[in-house]
Design a protein around this nucleic acid. Structure first.
Lengths: 227, 227
DNA sequence: ACTTGACCCATTGGATACAATGAGCGAGAT
DNA sequence: ATCTCGCTCATTGTATCCAATGGGTCAAGT
């Protein structure tokens, strides 16, 4: 082989994993699309070995389906599967919200406040002018908010389980939150949630988070993204 | 290469994955123990390639820690991490119990009944004579019972998330349920749970399952297994 | 025309050779 | 004696070669 990609610092397999993952999440690789190891290897300037390693991990994470000698395809999910994922997320994250309310430290709150104010500003800006750039940023801030709550809950296993599901549903989320009213609802949900957590009201936080996620779930079912 | 293991049917990587997994779960490979690819390759009569593939999956599943150029080690978990895992399991499976109660079909109930009667017989037998053989069987039946409830809940994502955690905690479970009073408690919990599910009382089933798992969690914390 | 079977090829699965890296060890200096 | 620097070596990371498999195609028979 001639040359590896750009830099040789991190492991090639990791870079390939991240890249494929991102490609899937961003919709560059569509559900059902077949991916062959050789093509990916060429695309990333690597050999098949690290690509293989990456694919194995992606399969374990539920992003692709690997069938023995036939090939690998981006996993496609039926509507009801998406709904199921949201149901489980609702359980996990509402639990996290309760724990966060009950156990959070001051710095967790500070981080949540920071993210929330960015979220407020950005959504206000998005409602007016440059919405195009804002969607990605909002999506990422939204993710950050949920992460922060999971951190505040102080249960790494819980965070891990929830993240697995969040990652899988991320693509959907991105498109769904394109809707302006959805953005407003989400930001306002977060605001209430933050209040509940700040006042250490576990039950309230739990209920709000459940409603927040199930709300997203239902609006997603009513207005499915293009597929 | 000389010869591959015994049979050539399933993929070598899969067999290696299962074998290592089993070795870890059964305590043959102890937490913290380092495993090198070459040693495993020799042990299974395979080359490093499938072993590597298996290890990547095991790492993704949380059974081992893979550090870049330093090696792979069986993941060791602190006591509080085990407790965290049980907390999350309690959430997921109590949710599953509720869904199972509300939505189960007849055949789910039949399966549960079947497992439960086996469980009753075996625990009675264990209380008397041949306990040695019974422990593994009880453990496996117990697993089957929880699986059956997850199936009855009808949410594959939920089943998946719960399974991930159950697998990780399986080793602990095996040793913990060695205690006779634990076995009795567990069987009696199951009996009540089954009643709740049969009567389609979701809230009751949820509460029972939560108590069941948190009970196991607490007795595990009080009587930690050898490590 | 439809079914069936054999063959070919694309693609993955596994083995081995080679490169890179991080850890441990020992020699030398202070 | 201790600390540091560099070297060696065990082990992983990557590349490439060969084997195996399964699907698709094309042709022949009914």
């Amino acid at each position: 082989m001639v040359k590896r990609g750009i830099k040789s610092g991190p492991r090639m397999a990791d870079r390939v994993y991240e890249d494929i993952r991102r490609a899937i999440v961003q919709g560059e690789l569509k559900p059902g699309e077949r991916i062959t190891e050789e093509v990916l290897a060429d695309r990333f300037g690597a050999s098949r070995t690290p690509v293989r390693s990456a694919i194995v991990r992606l399969a374990s994470d539920g992003f692709v389906d690997m069938t023995p000698h036939s090939g690998t395809a981006v996993k496609s999910r039926a509507r009801h599967e998406i709904a199921e994922i949201y149901d489980v997320r609702a359980m996990l994250e509402s639990f996290a919200a309760r724990l966060a309310a009950e156990r959070h430290e001051e710095h967790h709150l500070a981080r949540l406040d920071g993210i929330q104010s960015e979220l407020e500003e950005l959504s206000a800006a998005a409602r007016r002018g440059e919405r195009e750039d804002a969607v990605d940023a909002l999506s990422s801030l939204n993710l950050g908010f949920h992460q922060a709550i999971l951190d505040a809950a102080g249960n790494p296993t819980l965070k891990d389980s929830a993240n697995r599901l969040m990652d899988i549903g991320f693509l959907i989320n991105t498109y769904a939150s394109f809707d302006a009213s959805e953005i407003d609802r989400s930001v306002s949900d977060h605001r209430k949630l933050l209040t509940a957590i700040r006042s250490r009201d576990g039950a309230w936080a739990e209920a709000l988070m459940r409603a927040h996620i199930l709300g997203a779930r239902n609006s997603l079912i009513d207005h499915p993204p293009r597929h």
